[in-house]
Write a protein that binds this DNA or RNA. Sequence first.
DNA 1: CATGAATGAGTTTTCATTCAT
DNA 2: AATGAATGAAAACTCATTCAT
Lengths: 206, 206, 206, 206
Amino acid sequence: MSKERQALKQEEIKNLIINTAQEIVAKEGINGLSIRKITNIIDYSPAIIYHYFKDKDEMISKLMEKNYKKIIDAMSSVYSTNSEPEQKLKDSTKAYIEIALQMPDEYMNIMLNTSDNILEHTSVLFNGASVKRQAIGVLCKVVKDYYKGFTISDAEIELTAQLIWTSTFGLIIRLIIEKNIPQEQRNNLINQHIKIIINGLLHTKS
Amino acid sequence: MSKERQALKQEEIKNLIINTAQEIVAKEGINGLSIRKITNIIDYSPAIIYHYFKDKDEMISKLMEKNYKKIIDAMSSVYSTNSEPEQKLKDSTKAYIEIALQMPDEYMNIMLNTSDNILEHTSVLFNGASVKRQAIGVLCKVVKDYYKGFTISDAEIELTAQLIWTSTFGLIIRLIIEKNIPQEQRNNLINQHIKIIINGLLHTKS
Amino acid sequence: MSKERQALKQEEIKNLIINTAQEIVAKEGINGLSIRKITNIIDYSPAIIYHYFKDKDEMISKLMEKNYKKIIDAMSSVYSTNSEPEQKLKDSTKAYIEIALQMPDEYMNIMLNTSDNILEHTSVLFNGASVKRQAIGVLCKVVKDYYKGFTISDAEIELTAQLIWTSTFGLIIRLIIEKNIPQEQRNNLINQHIKIIINGLLHTKS
Amino acid sequence: MSKERQALKQEEIKNLIINTAQEIVAKEGINGLSIRKITNIIDYSPAIIYHYFKDKDEMISKLMEKNYKKIIDAMSSVYSTNSEPEQKLKDSTKAYIEIALQMPDEYMNIMLNTSDNILEHTSVLFNGASVKRQAIGVLCKVVKDYYKGFTISDAEIELTAQLIWTSTFGLIIRLIIEKNIPQEQRNNLINQHIKIIINGLLHTKS
DNA sequence: CATGAATGAGTTTTCATTCAT
DNA sequence: AATGAATGAAAACTCATTCAT
């Protein structure tokens, strides 16, 4: 067996472990996750975990990382298409919401996580987030585009982007927590949310 | 008299247990909460819990209930003061945020709780929330006041109120999760948040 | 309140406790019996038990004693009626079985109990049981009557009585353990049992 | 080889656990059996039980199964030898009693057990037991042999076999419960028991 | 690479019992 | 006479982890 293949297999098993862990977390919450449950499902011995990870914490870290990347990947494919700034903002906000709702467990896990090494990636409220956080950075650009020709400080642009983000975040979290909201109501809420945000910007503009 | 006093003492110990539990949850999350930890701190035997509560679940229920009431009480003292609708909205939103930030652990515990009997009290997104949820109901009144003289459907008013709420909720949650944000930045964010909300409403009006 | 009345009340509560205990044992077996369960049912505090009994063991002892007496009382009313020895044996055996089956839990509890102070009353196999155990004593008389005019040693009479007793005991225990035996089958078994016993005696006689 | 050996060792420890459990049950009754007691004796940690059994219930099940098999094995080696039906019955009854008395704890445990899945194997009183229960079946054959040339219904044969069984069972149980009966008295009782049974049959015959 | 054996520390819960009042 | 408070000891069970093989 070539080294490559071994490496591949190793990576495969790591993924198998992490994916199984993810499934358990999705079904039973982070509390429901145990080494034994994982290895029972994948038909390995509990000790196998310690071959591929230092301990449970490291495994969870890697799981979080993966989820984080999954989210970032999905999100980064979003803020790009249309040329009209208003439509751009509308489209991308809607897309952002929809993507988040397609992976509710991962989104919650990551975005409500309070551990420092996750927050390193997910915090958005600090002064200067527009350069350190892609999400806010892109939003800033859209907002800036939007206000082309108007006098508005970079600081205010950043704050605006941050609050567009937090308000959208708030809607997403509630939509996830309050499961069982009918599709129609969901759509109404999302559309109204976008309307209000655009209104907020429009006014200042005029 | 003696009976009264006993009842009082009983209530005291119940509170002692619940408060200690609350502290542990705040520090270590709900998973970190164990009967042993509680009784070690308050220097009682584990069995005492079962003197005052049926089981751990009942204790947690009571804890949640208490937190829920604490939040409701604090919140209900909010939406009332000024007569100008715009100022009323500004004031009350600010007050709401501040109160939530004064009891971050309780707020998170309750508002991110996904158990059905908590959601019975905390869900706000369903169609008709304006009559079943005080918070949304009060917000609706303010919004209605705001649009006096304009044609706007009750449905849209409710949606608007719901989204003011979720956006504010989003900001609060992020402010709690991203602990260590400097006071100035905090204030900037809060003020800008309120500004954007008001803007959103203003535009439609004009 | 007169001393008598107090004594009465005391006796009443003792009985209340013991009867409740008996009910629990009947429903959940001796393992299911706990102080708390008793006092929950009779609406007293657990500590009350220690007012009326030294400890749980003493209470169980008293319960056993009561059951034992109940059985003895019921049984002693049995071996007496008819004058024909054969019919006497038939009648009384049948009556004995039926009485035992009317209080299966108590019968099992007592008769299968291996503690010395119960065995003091319930053992029947020792040499000399005919004078020390009423049940065997009465059986001996019937058997003796039966063999009137035949040469048969007292020792053999006692042995015979003991084995009539153990065989009947065996049937009773199985009838209790194998609950759900249809009434008809029950009757067939009981009648055949009596038939065989009588046969056993008859033969030697002729 | 290595696998075989491991399986062997596994079986050894399982047996160690079960045998220890059996000893405890023998001494203190089924209530006295606890995981801790077992593992204290065999000098393992309590958790080891869950390595080899799903839970306590499974372990007890296995213990019962083993006892049941032990009894069945011993018993099945019994009803076979002599050609004379009378002697056959005498021999086998005596052998049955002796075997039961050689493993009193196991016999009691199994034969007085009231759980359905044990009763599935141990019940003997139902109509039709002669075809479903080996013990009764074999007894039926002996009884039938005995009555060769006489008119007797199959039903009566079965009933007779059942009552030979229950009466023997009754004697065995009492001999176990009333420990400390001198050997001579034991023998007298056993012999008289067999005599009475044979008498019962003989009479009808003549 | 993978595992079976084993465990220490922990979990919630139940129990019989004591004692001051 | 009766109890509420309190507990030590024990119950069954789970978990993350280690280690020799």
